[in-house]
Simulated scan of single mutants.
Amino acid sequence: MPIVVDIDVLMAKRKMSVATLADRVGITPANLAVLKNGRAKAVRFTTLEALCDALECQPGEILRWEPDTAAPTTNLPD
């Protein structure tokens, strides 16, 4: 999937455990693990906001897009 989730990087920089972050965000550690491991299909803006607040970051520091090198690119008309 071309969307990469960098929660683990931010947690390491802030020396924060999964349990602590989950508690601050208001989600279960299991649901945080789903987000952290990139298995989530969606994230609510309220959850993203809570993650940004707890990690003191911007949404772009949590989520980033990397093109899928295996998928062919399509040229869209201008």
Rank of each mutant, 00 (worst) to 15 (best):
R64I: 08
V25N: 03
R64C: 07
T47R: 05
D78M: 04
L10F: 03
K36V: 09
M16R: 02
P77F: 09
A70M: 14
E56K: 06
E66H: 12
A50H: 02
I3M: 06
I3R: 08
P29I: 02
T46S: 07
A54V: 02
I27Y: 11
A12Y: 07
D6S: 13
D23W: 01
A40L: 00
D6M: 07
R24P: 04
R44T: 13
D68S: 11
A22D: 05
D68N: 15
E49C: 06
I27A: 14
K41Q: 09
S17H: 14
A30V: 06
L32Q: 05
V34H: 06
S17T: 13
P2R: 11
L51A: 08
G60S: 15
G26H: 11
P77R: 11
G38P: 02
D78F: 06
W65V: 15
T73L: 05
L63E: 10
T73G: 10
A54H: 03
P77L: 15
A71H: 13
L32M: 01
R44D: 14
N37T: 07
L63Y: 09
E49I: 04
D78K: 06
L48E: 07
T28L: 03
T73V: 11
C52G: 11
I3W: 01
E66L: 09
E56C: 05
A70E: 15
I7R: 03
D68F: 11
L63W: 12
P29W: 00
T20W: 03
N37P: 15
F45D: 10
